[in-house]
Amino acid sequence: MLNEKEMSVGERLKQARVTHKPALTQKDVSDRSGISQSVISDLERGKIQGTTKMIELAASVNVNALWLSSGHGEMRSPETERLTEIQRLSHAIQKLDLTKEQVERLVNMAIAEASKMAFEQQR
């Protein structure tokens, strides 16, 4: 079996996609990254060797961009997952063209819902 540095970008992408919790489809990665599903498929099949949107692609599967592009470093860590979630959120906000007020309203709603869920779990 190849070590991560010997794997292609596409092989590392597929590994990241299928080991994500929950596992992601190519369509999921496409939706999360803004990269077409055909490009993701071409990467995984080795038809193309990279993309200029490596940061977005790494964020979509919650992995370190350096690891995805070269195999160096950790695939996932708590810090990487936190940062990639922030990148994904930023991408979604831009994609939806939300105003600052709309984002603040959504954040407040999410905090209220999370607090309610935490309270219910403690019962």
Rank of each mutant, 00 (worst) to 15 (best):
T52H: 04
G46A: 11
L13F: 06
A92G: 01
A92W: 12
L2A: 14
R45S: 13
L89W: 07
L66W: 03
L98A: 11
S36W: 10
A59R: 12
G50N: 09
L43G: 13
R45T: 13
E56Q: 10
D31I: 04
G71F: 07
N62L: 09
S38Y: 05
G71D: 10
L66P: 00
A92M: 13
K5A: 06
K5N: 05
K14L: 02
T80K: 00
H91R: 15
A16G: 02
R32A: 05
I35F: 06
S60P: 04
A58Q: 15
V18M: 07
I86P: 00
R82V: 09
M1Y: 03
L83G: 00
Q49K: 11
G73V: 08
I86Y: 10
S60I: 09
R17V: 01
Q15V: 01
S8Q: 04
G46L: 10
R32D: 03
L13H: 10
L83M: 14
K95E: 14
L2T: 14
R17P: 01
A92T: 11
T99L: 06
I35D: 04
D28H: 09
Q15E: 15
D28R: 03
N64I: 07
E4K: 08
S30F: 02
V9G: 01
I48T: 14
R82P: 00
Q49L: 04
G71V: 08
V61G: 07
E6C: 08
V18H: 00
V39H: 08
M7Y: 03
G34E: 02
H20E: 11
M75T: 10
R88T: 09
P22M: 09
E4I: 08
K5S: 11
L66H: 02
S8V: 04
S69Y: 10
R105G: 02
V63Q: 07
R45Y: 05
A59D: 15
E101T: 13
K27I: 11
S69L: 12
G71W: 06
Q37I: 13
K95H: 08
H20T: 04
K53V: 03
V29T: 06
K47Q: 05
V63W: 09
Q37W: 06
Q49H: 07
M75W: 09
K21S: 14
G10R: 05
E4R: 08
I40K: 05
L66Q: 13
S69C: 10
D31T: 10
K100I: 05
K100A: 05
A16E: 00
